[in-house]
């Protein structure tokens, strides 16, 4: 049993607030991705969980035990560092074996675990080499193998696949997920790649400037973002937001009309693929600027009420730049945001 409870963790560097009362609960065996833009505090949070960074406030519990003041070695976890931290004076084999050796594991077990981790990460050919003779991606895989070899109850990974080519990353992602699921490893996985987070995680915690703004299943985060930031950060193309006016429960813009919560100025949020293309006078009036054929679909970029909007249209569509078309978002899938706070307004069940 090794769930993680992060309880109102604060961190200030000098006067700058890096983490602002961050709370997160990761269930035993759960895979949570920490997703956020560069500099939002992901690494800092991970290092505080590991005990490598001092905290300015709050507690960390692992498996119901308050580990806030324990040394990293006593927290019973493994970590993949953002900059690998593979030991340069040891062979790849000894690097991967490091955690087992410090725990005085029997030689036979060391060999078995190292081999299994090496196989998983395709680094068997390099086992006798020194890290200086490896590429960045190979070193990164050594760092992941080193963490997996100790069969940790809790695994912290800081962008562990960032340096691999697209094909290898896809393969590693699938393998990693399978292995961690089989072992029931509680995992916190830092990434700023949202497709990685979507594909791997049981839940995604989206961070923005030192706070977790939403923590939910990938589909919920995708479909019902808690803030305009989440909608814009998760998904490709990002969610579109168009200012719209709500009078007596009905929001209207151009030829589009829908039941909306709140009153006055609102933001209408919709995903580019949740729209129907219609005649210009029906739906939102969309001025096409660019049409990019993507093979499976056509990506249209343009403006609605002077706001940049991207929508996905079927391949057959015939539009040219400068044309106007009508966009009708699926009313079941739109979200409503407050323009002042950027937070989602409760959905009206109709």
């Amino acid at each position: 049993m090794a769930g993680i409870v992060i309880d109102r963790i604060e961190k200030t560097f000098g006067t700058a607030k890096a983490l602002d009362a961050v709370s997160l609960t990761v269930a035993d065996g759960e895979f949570v991705a920490l997703l956020g833009p560069s500099g939002c505090g992901k690494t800092t949070l991970l290092r505080i969980i590991a005990g490598l960074e001092s905290r300015s406030g709050g507690r960390v519990l692992i498996g119901d035990r308050d580990v806030s003041d324990l040394r990293p070695a006593d927290r019973g976890l493994a970590m993949v560092f953002q900059n690998y931290a593979v030991f340069p004076h040891m062979t790849v084999f000894e690097n991967v074996a490091f955690g087992l050796r410090t725990k005085n594991a029997p030689e036979e077990k060391v060999r078995r675990n190292v081999m299994r981790a090496a196989e998983l990460l395709h680094i068997e050919p390099y086992l006798e080499r020194y890290p200086a003779k490896l590429s960045g991606g190979q070193r990164q895989r050594v760092a992941v193998a080193r963490a997996l070899a100790v069969e940790p109850a809790v695994l912290l990974m800081d962008e562990p696949l960032s340096n691999l080519d697209a094909l290898l990353r896809l393969e590693m992602r699938a393998d990693l997920k399978r292995v961690l699921q089989e072992a029931g490893t509680t995992t916190v996985y830092v990434t700023h790649d949202q497709t990685e987070a979507m594909g791997l995680a049981d839940r995604i915690a989206v961070m923005h400037s030192g706070r977790i703004v939403q923590c939910d299943t990938p589909m919920t985060v995708y479909a019902a973002p808690a803030t305009t930031f989440v909608g814009g950060f998760v998904g490709s193309p990002p969610m579109n937001f168009v200012p719209i006016r709500n009078e007596d429960g009905r929001a209207r813009l151009d030829g589009f009309e829908a039941t909306a919560p709140g009153t006055g100025e609102l933001l209408l949020g919709f995903r580019g693929e949740d729209v129907r293309i219609d005649a210009p006078e029906r739906g939102l009036s969309f001025a096409v600027a660019v049409a990019e054929p993507m093979g499976s679909h056509v990506l249209l970029t343009g403006t609605i009420a002077d706001k940049l909007v991207r929508v996905v249209a079927p391949t057959g569509i015939r539009v040219a730049a400068g044309e106007r078309i009508g966009i009708v978002p699926d009313p079941e899938r739109v979200v409503w945001m407050s323009p002042e706070t950027g937070a989602a307004l409760p959905r009206i069940i109709s």
Binding site: N83, A85, F87, F98, T102
Partner: peptide, 20 residues
């Protein structure tokens, strides 16, 4: 980070100094 990695993988401060 080398030392930190050693700590995470079970070393005390002195062990990390000695081994890494």
């Amino acid at each position: 980070e080398f030392e930190e990695a050693a700590w995470v993988f079970g070393c005390t401060r002195f062990q990390a100094i000695r081994k890494v």
